[in-house]
Design a protein around this nucleic acid. Structure first.
Length: 418
RNA sequence: GAGCUCGUAGCUCAGUAGGUUAGAGCGCCAGGUUGUGGCCCUGGAGGCCGGGGGUUCAAGUCCCCUCGGGCUCCCCA
């Protein structure tokens, strides 16, 4: 096929009418379930100040160092948001949401942008939903965040998942651990993979995450972060695990789980699925107790997660789950002749006024073509109107499912439709 | 940034050792039914065989370049 003149940018996809129903279904589900958990939606701009993202996620992270779309205009630096935790925290601080009292429970749905090489489950514009609880350091908050996340996947029927859990502690214990880890790796520095060598100074924790074969022996013998956690961190982590157990949410502890953003503290978790291929993370999140202060707000503990919507759809496909209903319309008005077309146009509004969805042919096609169209559009009923019907004031009212017809006045049709 | 792989109708794909006007199924349009959908039958529209160059009497088919898609590494949703 010849390549069209204009196409979407690499890694950016159109969501077409045939697939929009599953999006609506998922969005509706997220909204109704989030409200059951008493979360409120927040919408922030697609673009933020570059500095917010750099400071928030960390200069050295992969996302900031090579995956953000940014540009400047005059004095201002813009960035297409690569995630929403930092922007939500910004909004929380900027709008003094803490003054609403209590902890703030926020959820969001929307597009994110990362300049990566697209592949299965990875696009440059993709969609996430997620939630954040601001103002609570209690493990109950961690448990609720995870519970909501799991709840959504259970509700949809995606069962083949694993919840990975870890605690990365507070900054002090992490510093102590980093020192110990570096001491352990240093004698074999030359044998480490190239990426790991690069991370040795600026981000040694991520070496634990390495999938490079040559790193494995050193990772396996490395000290565990778990053993360097402060008493407070251990207590918090223990509580989280206890609550998850009580809630009947199975999890696997993964002491090597380290997440990509610098703002994480304490609890870190990831929901993975073997159905996704190489990009196996359905959702991920954790606690970020220092981010609010980092961005200029009062010290405020917080925890949240983000989930990839496209990846959720991939998991559904693999499991044969169909989201959303078929497209349909209540009434299709089939018209013959100009007078009938005008009559149809007027009755469309009358039907819609009553809350009935209705449509008609706009192309002046034959009756057969209109019936075919009504069928394709999944019309429940067809109203057929020509010269005779107009004269008599009685219209052919066809039940498209039962294939039965009656001759009724428009008023009688309205009665049947209720 | 690196590697692998694939580009033939709207979609899924056939195209035999290079050989005349490039095919099928689905979808679309029309007719069979002068006012009736889904099933069936018939017909039609729709392809610079991704683009450019080369080899050859002859290229969808072979070679080179290029563009685009998909997958993988890294990392993440």
């Amino acid at each position: 096929m010849a390549q069209p003149k204009y196409t979407t940018h690499h890694g950016m996809v159109d969501i077409l009418p045939d697939e929009i129903r599953k999006w609506h279904f998922l969005e509706d589900l997220i909204r109704t379930e989030a409200e059951k958990f008493n979360f409120e939606e927040i919408r922030t701009p697609i673009m933020e100040q570059t500095e917010l993202i750099v400071r928030g996620l960390g200069q050295m992270t992969d996302i900031v160092s090579k995956e953000i779309f940014s540009f400047s205009r005059g004095e201002d630096n813009y960035v297409l948001r690569p995630e929403l935790t930092a922007p939500v925290v910004r909004a929380y601080v900027e709008n003094r949401l803490d003054q609403r009292g209590g902890s703030q429970k926020l959820y969001y749905i929307g597009p994110m942008f990362r300049a990566e090489r697209p592949q299965k489950g990875r696009q440059r514009q993709f969609h996430q939903f997620g939630l954040e609880i601001m103002g609570s350091s209690d493990a109950i908050a961690d448990a609720e965040v995870i519970a909501f996340m799991i709840h959504i996947y259970r509700k949809i029927g995606i069962k083949n998942t694993t919840l990975k859990l870890n605690s990365i502690g507070d900054p002090e214990s992490r510093e102590k651990y980093k020192a110990a880890l570096k001491a352990h790796l240093k004698p074999n520095f030359e044998k480490l993979s190239e990426v790991s060598q690069k991370r040795f100074e600026n981000n040694p924790l991520r070496i634990l995450d390495s999938k490079e074969e040559e790193d494995r022996p050193f990772i396996e013998t490395a000290p565990l972060l778990t053993n360097y956690l402060s008493e407070t961190s251990v207590n918090h982590y223990t509580k989280v695990k206890e609550y998850l157990g009580d809630l009947g949410i199975p999890f696997v502890e993964d002491p090597y789980l380290v997440r990509g953003m610098d703002y994480y503290t304490e609890t870190a978790f990831e929901l993975i699925s073997p159905d996704l291929g190489a990009q196996d993370a359905l959702a991920g999140g954790g606690r970020y107790d220092l981010l609010v202060e980092e961005i200029g707000g009062m010290p405020t503990p917080a925890v949240g997660f983000a989930a990839g919507m496209e990846r959720l759809f991939i998991a559904c496909e693999e499991m044969g789950i169909h989201l959303g209903s078929e497209k349909k319309v209540d009434v299709y008005i089939v018209t013959l002749g100009d007078a009938a077309r005008k009559w149809g146009l007027l009755q469309l509004s009358a039907l819609r006024e009553k809350g009935i969805s209705a449509t008609m042919d706009y192309m002046g096609r034959s009756m057969k073509a209109q019936m075919k169209d009504a069928n394709r559009e999944n019309a429940r009923f067809a109203i057929i109107v020509g010269e005779n019907e107009l004269k008599e004031g009685k219209f052919t009212f066809r039940d498209m499912v039962k294939s039965e017809e009656m001759l009724l006045s428009f008023k009688e049709i309205l009665n049947v439709l209720f």
